[in-house]
Each structure stands twice: as structure tokens, then as C-alpha cells.
Design a protein around this nucleic acid. Structure first.
Lengths: 407, 407
DNA sequence: TCCTTAATGGCTTGAACCAGACATTAATAC
DNA sequence: GTATTAATGTCTGGTTCAAGCCATTAAGGA
């Protein structure tokens, strides 16, 4: 449990307001088991854990008292007495998440199963700095935080590197003014002890895995929005790297065969992948060709309306991406590649180029059973991943007791 | 515990030869703790585990009876009564490991601390197939397996993808005739239940971490020998990928600016990194220039003797490697990059090019504190990594009891 | 309605362990 | 040698939990 995240809890406990219901590590283990394996009967629980029936019942009683689990009314049908099923009580509390991008953010309220209950999209400019943006986040989330159930956790993603232990933004390339911002410290006072912060692409890849590819341990997500980034799950865990800057695929030198002068990237180098295939690069090319558009969404709209130039540019972008992703496939050997971000809404126009290059470049073994697809989560990947990340931390002895103390 | 690995043990137990000394999971946990944290006193153990003193003593007694731990004679000096120190009894048994390369292998005998006791290098040709090569391995290891202490585990690495759960070679690009070979099944009869098999570069990176970079969780090892490969440790664990083919950096398209025709790689594609920077590519270039050499070691010797052409080729190879490694740095954000393999013996000649490209291409955040060095283990990386891998599996309830049953 | 089946609940026993309270033991400082 | 100090040994409850034996409970089927 991070120091930052516990500040609120410590203050709470020191004020003498011990919660009436508390859980121990065994009970938490039970909740985690049920969360992972879906509805289970008492017998199932005993098999999974090796606990004696008495122990199972004791712990079940405690989770039921705390409202963490509930029996979803139903039972199974077999021959004899039907077994009661136990599942996470998703309505026991709620979470709030904010998936912050460079030019817009999606705020959402989810239940404890990570399902989105309400969602709001809002325009922002990340370059306005943490004071402006986080104020908007607090207001927006506050509006979603209806009473009724308690708020048990908050998740925030930002388009830059995050030191995951403390939730501090570190040396972000594009987030002007954010360096060193400790987001949990800014939000903790208003929203309680559990504030989870991650990089936007990391949140997306976690969301894809949690929602669609639950049994896949090696997953690569390419976000193609204004810029280009990658989120990696390897060995079933988010790959962050030594400084939290892993997955920086946008500023790899692109492998292009044209004789065209390598374009200047926002990072200061020449010929980065992003400078060919990012949303801003396509907008630049459209403008250069006399067809200026105002946003990446308009690029997507143009492609969907059959605009020839926009379509060609997106297909070219797919090929550039594909060449680089093919290298990443050799290095990481993922089982699934998901293409997300705004431009993934162009579907096959972008995917075709990616597939073409990957299939022509990668070695057979790395491609065996390789699945390549566009995200099907309609832009919710990040939000879902944040909810999942918060829940992973919530179902922990310390955090859960802190949450139960809230109500 | 893999099915394959337990065949020997099961047969043993069914024969009615129960071991006299057995350990439970708590005891094994103690051994692992001591292995990880070095010599500990009883008080240290209690602090680390939270166990009561009685429990600590009970478990210590069992490990001492089994000979797994011992007090290294000495004690600490403080004010009061000196604390007895407990450490893994490295001489309790021994391991045998075989680091098999394309054209040669290194066999070694190690103690339970993973220290090499004896080592033998031997020429082989991997393309002779599993029957010939594994026979040589069995003979060579048998010669190292002196009596005295029991043999508790064997490690084997091969230059190709391995399905780590079963130790089966799968779809190797260069190991003709090896596809589907289950190495534990071939060696288990002769060498007992615990046969650990891994890819050569994975073993190397584990060895570097275990021996030199114990506290580094994100490590990238580039092996530059006849071919080029990479071993990756991310989040403190070996990154194998979905099919065990992760780290295939040798067949990424090289980023070269010359107008020279892209060379044909052994994998059938044009312009792979290995076709520029691998040992065989440098031998080819030397031959093309009228200076043929017979082996990669002779390339190294030529550089060390100051041969101008060989030196230039190695430096060029370093640059090609560096460009590709720079991409990998962006993707993985390692804390340390180790250059290993035969060509790393050229030291700065190879490193200079690598460093040049990485420093000019990578983003500042990914390079912050990035450490780049040649391996200092004199070719023992793989052997040490194998020993470490075997020990990780040996110190497990099932395997340890199987081992204790052997003596 | 009665029987069979499978899931639960209750209760008792014994093993493993933690928490303390004291008693010992082995160095160091005077 | 004697006092001080820190590491160990030992012993006594008290708690947690696995195992096993029986009694209940709730469906489906004859």
C-alpha cells in the first residue's frame, strides 16, 4: 500500500472511527478468488483453496456481512440440493475513473465488477497544465459521484510516463507543466485513499485484457490517436520498464522505403513512426495536400465517407505501423495485437497495412496463432482498464478495510 | 511441477523407497528466504517471515537435519551474544549444466549456490541433430558427475525456442532435426527428475542478473555470436512470449543508411540485423574482402590483433546493432543492457557503435540511468543462468523432496 | 408422498502456530 | 571476575484451521 494512498485512511483511523466490519487476509483472498473465477459455490471454494468447510463458511459469513459478496439469487440445478452461488456484490460501492488524453478525456462511473454505469466525454487541453485539467477532472468526477453507494476508488490515466508506485508524472514528453505532479496527492483529499494512476496505453491494454482477452498473458496494444503509443502485457503483467516509459513505439525510427525527406517529429528527431503514422501526421499531410481538417476525428470521418486521399494516407500509416509492430512482434512474441485509439475506428483501412507488413516480416513461429484485431470496446478500453487496476488494488487487506471504514 | 520432471520421482516413490527426511512448504519457504537474502540469523528470519521463534527453530531444525542449510561456522560480532548465521549448504549436492550453442557447448558442474566448480568446452554441430548432440551431452556431463555429493538437478540451454513448461524444442530456425525434441525425456532416465531447459539467451540474461545485476528488474541482454539474439528480463521475470520465441532481435529488419544491396539472411529474408552484424555476416564480409577466417573466434582474434578491416566491420556491426537496440530500449525501457556472446570479447570496438546509436536515438527518459556494458562473466553467463534456473525450481516442495529421496 | 442425491450446518478433536513470560548462554566492557 | 547485552531455549496458554462424523435441507424422480 503506497504511503500516499493511505494518508486518508490513516487520518480516518487516528480520528478513532474504527470501522465496525473488518476483513483479514484470508477473507480478502476469498473475495479475490470469487472475483477471478466468477460465481462459486461453497464446494468450489473449498476445492480452489483447500480450506475446510468450516473455514470457508466463516470467511463467507464475513464477506456477506461486509456486503462484499452476495448470492445472486440463483442456484445451480443438478440432482440433489442446489448449491448457493457466491459472487462479488458489484453494487456494494462504485468507482470513478478518468481517462485523460491529449485533447479530451472520458470520465466514467463503474460498479465493483468494472462495468461502466455512466460516462462523459469532455474536451480538454493537456497542455493547460495539471491545475486546470485536474480541476476539471475533480468537477467532472464529482458530478458522476451520486450518493447511494460509497466511492471506493478512483483511477486516472494520463498520456505520459507515470511512476506507478506513487502515481507521479515523470518527464512527460508532451504534458507541458506536469512533470513531478503527484496525482493521488491532488485528488486524495476529495476522493479518498485509493487513487490509482497509470499511463493511458497501459490502462488500455489492461482493459482489453480484462474485457476481451482474459486468458491471454502476452498482449500488445497499439494506440493510434493523435500520437502513437503501445501498451504491453507480458507474462500477464503490465510491462512498465525501469522508468515507466516502456511501450514508446511512437518515437522509434520508421522503416520506410520512400525517398521522401524524413518528416520532423514533435520529439525533435527525424523520421519517427509517429511523424508518419500518428493522427497529427495525417492531418499535416492532408493540409499539405490542400484538404485541411480540424481534428483526428475528422480524419476518421473522411475515411468513413470514402475520401480517397484520407484513405490512402491511413493505409500508408498502417504499413509504417506494421513494419515497426513486426519488429515488436519479434521482440515480444505476443499472442494478440489490438489496435486502439481514434484511428482504429477506420477498421480495415488501417488494419490491412498493419497485417500486410507483419505477415510479410515476422518469422513463422512468432506468428503462429497471432491474432490481430481492432479494439471492439468503442473507446472504453482505457476506462475499463483503469477500473480493473483500481479493483486489483482495492481487493487488498489494507485498502479494503479502509474502504469498509467509509461505509 | 511438470509431469515430465516428476517421472523419475514417481517411479522412485512407488518403489517404496520413501525418503527419511522430508520438508513441508514452510520449510521450503525458509530455504528460499535464506537463498535470496544470504546468511540470516534466527532473529532476521523471524523479522522477514513474521514467524514465532518456536516456528523458526522447528523449521531450522528440519533444514539442518536435511543438510539444506548450515551455519557457516562464523557468527556476527555485536555487543551481546553473537547470532548464529544460517546459509544454504552449497556443498550438500551439485548440479550439472550444458549450455549448447550452434557450434560448441560448455558443460559445467556447480554447487547449490550456483558457483561453477568445473567446466569443459566442447565442439559440436547443433545440426547433427538431437541424437548425436544429446549423446555427447550425456557423456560429457557424466564425466563431470563425480560421486561424493548427489546430483540434484540438470540444466540445458539450446539455441532455439523452447516450450518452457515441458522443455520441448519447438520450431527452431537453425536447429535442424530438433523440432519436437523433449529434452527432459531424453535426459531424465540418466540424470533424475529435475531437468530444466531454456533458450540460450534466456539463460544468459538470467545468469547476468543472478551474478551481477541482482537488484535490476529490467534487463536486456544482446548475444552477438555466430547469430544475434536477445534475452529479456522484464518485471523481474524472463520474458518468453506466447510461443517462447520472444527476443528474436536477429531477424528484425536492420536500419542501415548505406546504398549497399541488403544482404540475404539465413532465415530467407533480406536485410536482417543478423545478416549485417552477426558473426557469420562478418566472416562473410571478411571472405568477400579476401581475408577469410575459419571461425567467429578468429574474427575476435583479428580485432584484438588490430586488424583494420575486422575492426571496421565490428564497429559497423555495433552501429547496426545499436540502431535496433535503440528501438528495443524505447519499447522495453530496460535499466541495463548487457552485450554478450563471442563478439562481445572485442569490448569497446563493438560497444562504441552500440552506444553511439542508442544515445543518439533514444528519448531522454528511457536513457536516464541506462547502463550499457559488455558481459564480464567470460562466457559463463549461460551456465550461471542455467544453474540459477535449476535452483529456482529445485527449492520447491515437490522437487526438494524428490531430491532428498536421492540422498 | 417417499426415496435418492448433493449441498450444507454443527460439533469435536488434534495439529500447527503465535504471543508472552522466564530461564540460559556467550560475548564485550570494566 | 562481574555486569551488561543480545541471542537463544523452554514452557504455557490461546487461536486458527483441517478432518471426520452426523444431522439437515432442498430438488428431482418414481
Amino acid at each position: 500500500m503506497s504511503i500516499v494512498a493511505l494518508i486518508g485512511y490513516a487520518a480516518h483511523v487516528e480520528a478513532g472511527q474504527e470501522s465496525l466490519i473488518a476483513v483479514d487476509s484470508g477473507t480478502v483472498e476469498l473475495v479475490r478468488l470469487v472475483r477471478e473465477h466468477g460465481p462459486l459455490s461453497r464446494a468450489d471454494i473449498g476445492e480452489h483453496t483447500g480450506w475446510a468447510r468450516v473455514t470457508v463458511n466463516q470467511r463467507l459469513d464475513r464477506t456477506l456481512d461486509a456486503g462484499l459478496l452476495h448470492t445472486p439469487g440463483t442456484v445451480t440445478s443438478a440432482r440433489g440440493r442446489p448449491a448457493a452461488q457466491f459472487a462479488v456484490n458489484a453494487q456494494r460501492a462504485h468507482l470513478l475513473v478518468a481517462d485523460i488524453g491529449a485533447s479530451g478525456m472520458r470520465l466514467a462511473r463503474t460498479d465493483l465488477a468494472g462495468r461502466v454505469q455512466r460516462r462523459v466525454d469532455q474536451q480538454i487541453d493537456i497542455a493547460d497544465g495539471p491545475d486546470v485539467v485536474l480541476t476539471a477532472v475533480v468537477e467532472g468526477l464529482g458530478a458522476l459521484d451520486e450518493p447511494g453507494t460509497p466511492l471506493w476508488g478512483v483511477g486516472v490515466s494520463v498520456p505520459g510516463p507515470v511512476e506507478s508506485a506513487t502515481g507521479t508524472v515523470i518527464s512527460p514528453p508532451i504534458m507541458t507543466g506536469w512533470d513531478g505532479t503527484c496525482i493521488p496527492r491532488r485528488l486524495g483529499e476529495r476522493f479518498g485513499p485509493l487513487i490509482f494512476v497509470d499511463n493511458d496505453v497501459n490502462a488500455m491494454v489492461v482493459g482489453e485484457r480484462a474485457s476481451v482477452y482474459a486468458d491471454v498473458d502476452d498482449l500488445l496494444l497499439i494506440k493510434v490517436g493523435t500520437g502513437v503509443g503501445a501498451g504491453i502485457i507480458a507474462n500477464g503483467r503490465t510491462l512498465r520498464g525501469a522508468n515507466g516509459s516502456a511501450g514508446d513505439i511512437g518515437h522509434i525510427r520508421a522503416d520506410v522505403e520512400s525517398d521522401r525527406q524524413a518528416p520532423l517529429c514533435k520529439c525533435g528527431q527525424l523520421g519517427c513512426v509517429e511523424a508518419y503514422a500518428g493522427g497529427w501526421a495525417i492531418m499535416r499531410d492532408l493540409a499539405d495536400a490542400g484538404q485541411p481538417v480540424a481534428s483526428v476525428d475528422q480524419v476518421v470521418a473522411a475515411v468513413q465517407n470514402g475520401d480517397a486521399l484520407a484513405t490512402r494516407l491511413v493505409r500508408d500509416a498502417g504499413r509504417v505501423l506494421g513494419s515497426t509492430v513486426a519488429d515488436a512482434v519479434g521482440l515480444l512474441n505476443p499472442a494478440v495485437i489490438v489496435i486502439g485509439g481514434q484511428l482504429s475506428a477506420t477498421g480495415e483501412h488501417l488494419l490491412a497495412g498493419v497485417r500486410e507488413r507483419i505477415y510479410s516480416r515476422s518469422l513463422p513461429l512468432a506468428m503462429r496463432d497471432l491474432h490481430i484485431a481492432a479494439s471492439g470496446l468503442a473507446g472504453d478500453s482505457g476506462v475499463l482498464g483503469l477500473a480493473h487496476g483500481v479493483l486489483d488494488r482495492l481487493f487488498t487487506t489494507d485498502h479494503l478495510n479502509a474502504a469498509l471504514a467509509l461505509g
